[in-house]
Design a protein around this nucleic acid. Structure first.
Lengths: 193, 193
DNA sequence: GTCTATACAAAGATAGAC
DNA sequence: GTCTATCTTTGTATAGAC
């Protein structure tokens, strides 16, 4: 017999899918509750308010994203492929976590010009995680002095790929384009190193 | 004596600034009306509903963006600079139209998973205009066969620059990074041509 | 074309019981 | 921890007059 997930987990599951596919404003609390089969009071008891629930869901999603990315990074055969694994992870994530409209973190950021500190922290952590690991992966390739620059450039291209998906591009095409451009940038930096 | 802009123009001015800086969901109709010094009935008489007003404002903004970009393109000294003028136009636009949180068009797209056809058309036109002109500018540089690819790649980088601003980057820095990456991509394509 | 006043709907959050 | 029922606020849109 299946053990049913707790109301708390059902809320996190529900809001993650809804935010990833519909966004914050298009996801009223009622819809979250209906999908999670949970009552309003339970949501507010656990998370305080809608934003608190979203912040928690994003924290969890970032952890999962990190794990998925690590798996892709471990498969990489060369230092360059290791940096570029961030693009493979995008496709891998979709297969595992399900489809999203573009990027859940950037999407929430775009929708919340003002936000509480918990939500803000969750969004900041996404950019920080990407930057930190890209820098770590780039270091063997371009050296200490240029690793930060490499991370910034790859993050820019990665962000561009996500934006192209929002513009309506097919993910496979955008990822392939981005991977190619990022490789160029890395080789250019590597030549300077 | 100054001629006051019509209620219609005041509405377009107000909503453009508000959407560019705050986004759709954070811009209730009341706030638009207050800023435009216009009554509710006037808005609905002219534009049907909030989305209609936004769609019109975006159309107007795209026209202005196009003009600004053309000015930047005319100054360019080389074919490569002409393609890359799209990045200069970003800075120029901020000086002329005032600050925005990142990209007004992508921002609205991110906030509206479902939308009416007028609004959808306005958003599509942005991507189309960018693609078409980038292709036109890239043609002398990389040839007919690769112009489409060049346009796609530069648009991806351009979109990445905007996304980096959403992540909190300084616009000057993001633009400089993007310009450099796009130049690399263009030269790589040019070498193939 | 534009205004005042108001209706209607949606959405976030809470009270009190079990 | 969780539910039912409800309150409050906010936001979109319309009626009717000038």
């Amino acid at each position: 017999m299946e053990t049913q997930p707790s109301a708390r987990d059902r809320l996190l599951d529900a809001v993650e899918v809804l935010i990833a596919t519909q966004g914050v404003a298009s996801t009223p609390v009622d819809v979250i509750l209906a999908r999670a089969h949970v009552s309003p009071a339970t949501l507010y008891a656990h998370f305080g308010n809608k934003e608190g629930l979203i912040a928690h869901a994003l924290e969890r999603r970032l952890t999962r994203w990190d794990r998925i990315w690590q798996e892709c990074a471990e498969i990489a055969q060369t230092p360059e492929d290791r940096v570029l694994s961030v693009f493979d992870a995008l496709v891998h994530q979709r297969d595992i976590l399900g489809p999203s409209r573009w990027c859940t973190f950037l999407g929430v950021a775009a929708e919340t010009p003002v936000r509480g500190e918990n939500l803000d922290a969750a969004l900041t952590r996404d950019t920080e995680l990407l930057t930190r690991r890209l820098e770590e992966f780039a270091q063997p390739l371009v050296g200490d002095a240029l690793a930060g620059t490499a991370a910034r450039l790859v993050l820019l291209v990665y962000t561009g790929v996500l934006g192209m998906i929002l513009r309506g591009d097919d993910m496979g095409k955008a990822v392939a384009d981005g991977r190619g451009i990022a490789a160029l940038a890395l080789r250019s930096l590597g030549a300077d190193a």
